[in-house]
Design a protein around this nucleic acid. Structure first.
Lengths: 357, 357
DNA sequence: CACCGGAATGTTTACGCAAACATCCGAGCA
DNA sequence: TGCTCGGATGTTTGCGTAAACATTCCGGTG
């Protein structure tokens, strides 16, 4: 019953964290100015005498003043924050993109908040989108297959701007994507140029748009070159699925070149081929996609298509902020180019005799 | 003049986003109650007639009402947000930890905002910490070597709670760490149990505390078993550094077992040994640390120490929220156990003849 | 029948900031 | 001298919410 802390029953109003950061009013008092002047200094606005400004700055420093972002957001109507919706971070690509987003955003004075989606179902995604309304963000970047949210019932707060990374181009949104088709074309041509008659394809899961586009581009590149299109082999992005597919491919002795839709599957593929006694690149050439950091250490080092995730992230932020600042959405796609990284897993096909009818 | 409201030069006061989300007042008007009642419904407080509550809920739905988090934060004095400070996301561990943090936080109704630090220097880190004050977070989780911020000059807003993940135990903060020592001990014992006379160690960079602890534990485990402690070989976590170290290790024919401080270096090591004709596991056993997803697809599949990053993330959030809720810091370390995953890269040493003096 | 107690609901207020508007003051000019 | 003009600064106001406090209305009670 005793007044432990200070006055009894003082009825701490609101903020139980009293002893907290100094407010503008505190600074104003110390500096002997009005809080409005403090505000001007704090925001670097003109119209403050140099001498006054310094007095205010000194007071700020003395009190350890930090603007309260909640009050700012409430007053200004924006949060200086970008949300990132993602299903999983466990792919190199998503992660690197996220990292670039965070860095670029930070440079612009924006924070990044993560909105993880537990299961990639429409409901979950829709849930994430609707939570958005109360989630203190000015824009969202979606790193995820967007067909998950193509339902028309999707309602998201009208002021939240959306950018979609690395996914299908829904024309309602701004999309930033790697040039999947270009990268694939380069990969296929690289193999054909080495003399392979055709190129097999270890595709990613059919639900993935990125996988779909690589597959389409692969088929198109072969057709354009007048080559036969071998049957499709599918994996699920994992090294293990690549291994399993590799066991099957090792049986096809007319298979001299494989384009794997990502590096991890290529890793499994290499192991399967090795196990089955098919030498890479002497018997079979293998090319991947992504250029994950380890791919130079595969056995043999993997030739692959480098994706510039950092650039993707950067452009996502760029587009998001442009939309926020202009106050209007900006649908349309941006393509980030890829680069072929030639290492040791590709070479000429084995000489012809013995195969063929 | 003018005065219509949409007159030219209307000077929209504050929030230029007028047509925005409905506010409590709007809901109150529609439901025919006071905004306070709306607040009570919104927060699930008692003392509202069931019938009234439903009327309010209906109004909310009709208007698509979403509480404004800025106003909430301002009023309540907390942000329901956890910040994560990290240097890079490009290691599997950091990334998986981050993912678990985001998921756990979401379950508790907390958002996660990312605070990337460009360069891991003290100044940068200190900068990140001081920005924290205005950065709308109630707690921070640091995924980073803390010795970067051991400077006493580090001042962070007094109300922000700190949890340090996977790093050294500074007794000012709560620390959640993987049981590096235990995992290392298991790895070394596993090899010794297979009959190896001693175990070499491919260490991580000396700046890393995690690396340091693995090295210490490795040495201690060997000493405890009365074995010789071979010279230390150092890498920098990358597969490539593992490869380079592997080339050197391949020269040591008394080296029959290597404990690599992470899986990526083990990957490079495997390649180097393979290239030099040293069979794994017949000539040399290799064991890693981390159990990254691909390690089961290495050649051969890698025996390694599994780290439960998800659990680390979860406990970080747990500790952070406990601190936030109790309003006081809670220094002390928590250890998350590891698990040995035995695959095919470890076995008995080759028979002795031919070696030895 | 005046009164009490408590549930349901309403009114006031303040959170920290910044836009809008108001004021003050000295320099320049007729 | 009286006036305007513009830079420097102060005052008022409101953003959306929720705590604190006030009011209303009810059945039950002495």
């Amino acid at each position: 019953m005793g007044a432990t802390d200070s006055a009894p029953g003082r009825g701490r109003t609101d903020a139980r964290r009293r002893a907290h950061n100094a407010s503008m009013a505190d600074v104003a008092r110390v500096a002997g100015v009005s809080s409005q002047t403090v505000s001007r200094v704090s925001n670097g606005f003109p119209g403050v005498n140099e001498e006054t400004r310094e007095r205010v700055l000194a007071a700020m420093k003395e009190l350890g003043y930090r603007p309260n972002s909640a009050a700012r957001a409430l007053k200004r109507g924006d949060f200086r924050t970008i949300g990132v919706i993602t299903f999983t971070l466990s792919t190199t690509g998503n992660m690197r993109t996220l990292e670039a987003i965070a860095t670029s955003a930070a440079q612009e004075g924006y924070a990044v908040t993560l909105l993880p989606v537990a299961v990639p179902t429409q409901d979950e995604v829709r849930g994430a989108f609707s939570r958005l309304g109360e989630l203190a963000v000015d824009a969202v970047i979606v790193i995820m297959e967007v067909h998950l949210l193509d339902s028309a019932s999707l309602t998201l707060p009208p002021h939240v701007k959306v950018v979609v990374a690395d996914s299908d181009a829904d024309d309602r949104y701004a999309v930033v994507d790697t040039d999947q088709a270009g990268g694939t074309r380069d990969a296929v041509r690289h193999l054909l140029d080495h003399g392979h008659r055709t190129v097999w394809h270890l595709a990613g899961p059919s639900e993935s748009f990125a996988a779909q586009r690589r597959t389409d581009a692969w088929r198109k590149a072969l057709e354009a070159a007048g080559r036969a299109v071998p049957p499709l082999v599918r994996g699920d992005w994992s090294a293990d699925s690549g291994y399993r597919a590799g066991l099957r491919l090792a049986e096809q002795d007319d298979c001299t070149a494989v384009f794997a839709a990502n590096d991890q599957m290529a890793l499994g593929l290499l192991r399967a081929l090795e196990e089955r006694g098919r030498k890479v690149p002497d018997d079979v050439s293998v090319i991947g996609f992504d250029d994950i950091p380890d791919s130079g250490s595969f056995q043999p080092p993997l030739t692959t298509v480098h994706q510039d995730f950092a650039e993707v992230g950067r452009r996502c932020v760029e587009s998001a902020l442009r939309q926020v600042r202009q106050g209007e959405t900006e649908p349309g796609a941006t393509l980030v180019p890829t680069r072929l990284v030639v290492r040791e897993s590709t070479g000429r096909p084995p000489s012809r005799e013995g195969r063929r009818g």
